[in-house]
């Protein structure tokens, strides 16, 4: 499961919903895998306001990944200009100014959409219940006594 998915998930126990500590869920014993995906800078720019940046930063630290900056980047920081000849130009003479994904964008893309939890647990900070992740699929079904 992708780390971006965790931006939209919380503990399934009804009484945890009102507690701030039920979000985000905390990864435990995670086995991570990088699943490469095509970068979409416009998507990244538009999603920024929807990210719970501080919580995402915490998640990244708990997973032992390189820390995120303390505040979310501005949309403009996700692109940079580059002078290069278009791919179709074999002479290399027709240099153009192109907008390409910046390092900030590539790092964010890697964290949100390419870093996947393949197995491990997701723990609620309020009730302590651990949800299992198996073969990349998180299981949020609760035992009968918790429903």
């Amino acid at each position: 499961m992708k780390l971006l998915t965790l931006n939209f998930l919380t503990c399934a126990v009804k009484t945890c919903k009102t507690s701030a500590s039920s979000f985000p869920l905390h990864p435990r014993d995670s086995e991570l895998e990088i699943v490469e995906a095509e970068i979409n800078v416009q998507f990244l720019q538009n999603i920024l306001p929807r990210l719970m940046w501080e919580e995402l930063g915490g998640l990244v630290n708990e997973l032992g990944l390189p820390s995120l900056p303390p505040t979310a980047p501005l949309p403009s920081a996700l692109v940079e200009s580059k002078l290069q000849a278009p791919e179709s130009d074999t002479t290399g003479l027709n240099i153009e100014k192109l907008e390409v994904p910046s390092q900030v964008a590539r790092d964010l893309h890697r964290v949100l959409l390419e870093t996947c939890i393949m197995s491990g647990g997701l723990v609620c900070g309020n009730c302590g219940h651990e949800y299992k992740v198996l073969e990349g699929v998180a299981n949020f079904l609760l035992p009968a006594h918790l429903v």
Partner: peptide, 21 residues
């Protein structure tokens, strides 16, 4: 398609979805 697929999670209805998201 340029849309972004997150995941399919195994769960009961929308019990694990962050409120109002």
């Amino acid at each position: 398609s340029r849309s972004t697929f997150l995941d399919i999670v195994n769960g009961d209805l929308a019990s694990s979805i962050r409120p109002h998201s």
